[in-house]
Design a protein around this nucleic acid. Sequence first.
DNA 1: CCGGGTAGTGTTAGCGCTCACATATCGCAC
DNA 2: GTGCGATATGTGAGCGCTAACACTACCCGG
Lengths: 336, 336
Amino acid sequence: MAVHGPAMTDVARLAGVSHQTVSRVLNGHPNVREQTRLRVRAAIAELGYRPNGAARALVTGRSQVIGVVAQNTTLYGPASLLAALEQTAAEEGFAVSVGSVRDLDHRSISAAVERHLSHRVAGIVVIAPVESAGEALERLPKDVPLVTVDGDPRRPVPLVTVDQVAGARAATQHLLDAGHRTVWHVSGPSDWFDGAGRIEGWRDALLAAGVEPPPLLQGDWSAASGYRCGQMLARMPEVTAVFTANDHLALGVLRALHEFGRRVPDEISLVGFDDVPEAAYFIPPLTTVRPDFDAVARASIHMLLSQIESGTGEALRQTIAPTLVARDSVAAPPRR
Amino acid sequence: MAVHGPAMTDVARLAGVSHQTVSRVLNGHPNVREQTRLRVRAAIAELGYRPNGAARALVTGRSQVIGVVAQNTTLYGPASLLAALEQTAAEEGFAVSVGSVRDLDHRSISAAVERHLSHRVAGIVVIAPVESAGEALERLPKDVPLVTVDGDPRRPVPLVTVDQVAGARAATQHLLDAGHRTVWHVSGPSDWFDGAGRIEGWRDALLAAGVEPPPLLQGDWSAASGYRCGQMLARMPEVTAVFTANDHLALGVLRALHEFGRRVPDEISLVGFDDVPEAAYFIPPLTTVRPDFDAVARASIHMLLSQIESGTGEALRQTIAPTLVARDSVAAPPRR
DNA sequence: CCGGGTAGTGTTAGCGCTCACATATCGCAC
DNA sequence: GTGCGATATGTGAGCGCTAACACTACCCGG
């Protein structure tokens, strides 16, 4: 177990140069003769040398690691985002260290961030969809590159976010365009910014069309809560169109409507949000809004890297527009 | 950006002790007077000192980081596993660095492992469900603590795995017990060990009951492929019971059956695998097999830690039994 | 043929920590 | 008191690397 691999000096000795030259080769420094470079590379290969990230991090003060703080990475959205972040980071030569948190309160977030800082991560991406998370972030040392995803739009922190409002507006408008008088909404938790944004977009679209938004049904992202809300909606004959804040809620609603014998889309039209891979196989296939997680990840990582490189911590923000994916769960309202 | 935080010597100076004593307090070394310990802690708090993981990793040769190699962390299974691993690792004071891979071939796996080694991770967990991954692992330096999850049962590598065979057998038996003559199977890719294990369990149960297994329908874990297989099954009147290798496949099958007007469970019974949170809200609620991801994660991390501590690399293996969750998608076969 | 740039390389000094060991301090039996 | 083990603390070295600077060739114009 104890067998430490070769160090830079071993490579240097084999190549007949100084360790510093090896370092230069490794870091792509220009002033190295081609022939020397080759010799060094050969020595590296021969010894199976692997640079020691810890030593490098110690001397430079930063490791090639990006810390990600996220909650509940089991949900489709966060999981996709995490995977995409990892992918993009890897392309840029960075590893990703996850610090998932059970609860999104100050303390948990701060603790997770602390853990990352203690490893001297180069920067931190916080997937911070709730109010309380924002506060924790403002207390942070200012010298740590930081990007929040789906965080608080009102805080002066670099932010990348899916345009929840536009997505929700598109979904609602789509239903209105199909001829529905109004659209009901089963929301996510309202203390989540994405939940709040979707509520706002829904309300916007309705108001713009001159209709008074019906009462909101609040869920918690789960199919279970969608089911509960669906049971209420199913019993109200005037309901003909529903927009749910995510696809899992839609699944729950779908099942409730089914149990009450209300057909989708003949009697009730439904639109979800997220475009989980299964959405196309719901009964019926679900019309939904697809956020581009890859784009979010790319934007986040690049924003973070530019902070790392430049040292500036400008409070940039970038918004990624989602797209509506039309499938079979929307139709014109039934004639009465 | 450059403002480095206080170092151990700063704390030491403030507390009026040597840096070594600070180190002892930090590492819970016994021989420190209570009063000194308190003074040091106070100094740490006052300065907002945070130990430098890189420096520690450099001198000890190991960081407090566990590397995880996984593919497609968007799928429910891997995502849950990853989250659970992270949780357990955090409880043990370890961070988790993810290296996700696009493809599960030697090269990708090796590259991901290399990246982790270069950061001097304390150990590596490989979620390696396919054949080719196993080969890559045998080439690895022997001195790195390593645990595979859902890997090749035949390789001499420490392994934690869900008992796929038992789970599949239970699912199949459950259908047989309900009175079905035989059970059809929509499988995952057969080069995935979990896919293969589920096929084996299904076949076992059938054979034990003295029935010849019907032809296998091979899918790829996705609802889309489940749908395609479902279209075939729906047209065969003799099919009354289907076991799918995961819940997404089941969803696809469900939709196909629905389109063909074949009612579940009245005409056809269905059992899935994974127990995704939405399974209870399928139409009808899906009977499925639930693997205990937390238990898998716990077993993996503990196996890894014991390797790290003891230095021994025995090829242990541990199997986690899944449980059947009965819901509404199973009934007795229709009378003909 | 000399001064001064520039490409290529070596030397040295830490980064912040832990380990091994040296030293100081204490308690207690005699 | 003295001696001795246990307890508490300090000292020095060095982990593997990069940054800064020092040095050596060599090329060039004057």
